[in-house]
């Protein structure tokens, strides 16, 4: 079990992670969702012992992972910038990982490199953005680390490579269950892989729940303005728009059966909201009041 308590990361006056408390059970795939600059990478850096938190604690099974040899060995953290030597050839990068990581699976690394069509003789500096990302995926998955953290590793990958990534990730997870945290803001195409989603915004935790629960969170209510207003009163409104006398609001929180029934009798139409839309609404630009309301 990974436990974060009041975790805070600051850079000078900038607060990147603002008092996050979170528990992650082992051997699940987590989706860490947040817009750019929401604090995802800072949070993950602390988890991977790449930096110390300014305040708060991280423990893995009760032990602080920072500079703990066993726990750091059991963690693989892949950042979008890749922590490899740019002048090295891919073959050398993979060989190096194999020499240092006791859990490295060289055969699997070769398989993945084939899947992503990586030429082992190419230097890292000569790779395209998407190929760099693919190399990151190879390093992250072939490490077979009990805690595998992939931070926006799909950048620059085309749709085909991303599909291959998701397929390989799932297949390898099924064969070798472990804790995987995948940070992303492209939720639509990966949501199915996540057992749970964690949404952070402006350094704060917005929600952490089963993906299926998250899916059922949003509802779009459409109808005559007055009726919509009345129904929405006292609920968390994520977004609203009007067209003539018709009004539509996006509400947060699943409706009970009797509430849905009441809405229909009031002449309102209810429609589910897709996960990507829900995420966009939840983390909408410049609306701190709403964020506060959700907390």
């Amino acid at each position: 079990m990974i436990s974060l308590r009041d975790l805070t990361v600051r850079y000078g006056d900038t607060v990147a992670v603002d008092g996050i408390t979170l528990d992650l059970e082992p051997n699940k795939i987590y989706g860490l969702l947040g817009r750019n600059g929401s604090g995802k990478t800072s949070l993950l850096s602390v988890l991977a012992s790449y930096r110390r938190p300014c305040a708060g604690t991280v423990t893995i099974d009760g032990v602080d992972p920072f500079e703990n040899a066993a726990l750091m060995r059991a963690t693989a953290f892949v950042r979008d910038s890749l922590d490899v030597t740019d002048q090295d050839r891919i073959a050398k990068v993979l060989d190096f990982a194999g020499r240092l990581r006791p859990t490295w699976d060289a055969g699997y690394a070769e398989h993945l490199a084939d899947v992503f069509e990586l030429d082992r003789r190419r230097r890292v500096s000569a790779l395209s953005r998407g190929q760099r990302s693919s190399l990151g995926v190879v390093l992250g998955l072939a490490a077979r680390a009990p805690l595998t953290i992939l931070d926006e590793v799909y950048l620059g990958m085309d749709a085909g490579a991303r599909a291959a990534f998701y397929r390989e990730l799932l297949a390898d997870y099924l064969a070798h269950p472990r804790t995987i945290i995948l940070s992303t803001h492209l939720i639509e195409e990966v949501a199915g892989l996540f057992e749970q989603v964690i949404v952070i915004d402006r350094g704060r935790l917005l929600l952490h729940e089963d993906t299926d629960t998250f899916r059922a969170r949003g509802v779009a209510v459409t109808g005559p303005a007055a009726a919509v207003e009345a129904f929405a009163a006292g609920r968390t409104v994520l977004g609203e728009q009007s067209l003539g006398g018709v009004r539509q609001v996006t509400l947060y929180g699943a409706l009970a059966d009797h509430e849905a029934e009441a809405a229909r009798t009031a002449g309102l139409t209810l429609a589910p909201v897709g996960v990507q839309d829900l995420f966009v609404h939840l983390t909408a630009v410049g609306d701190t009041a709403r964020t506060e309301a959700l907390r």
């Binding site: 795939i29 799932l170 997870y173 099924l174 199915g192 993906t211 299926d212």
Partner: peptide
């Protein structure tokens, strides 16, 4: 559940549920 998850590209816990 694992076959199902791999086939439909979903999390095995979801299939199990």
């Amino acid at each position: 559940t694992n076959q199902y998850a791999a086939f439909y590209r979903i999390n095995p816990a979801t299939a199990a549920k």
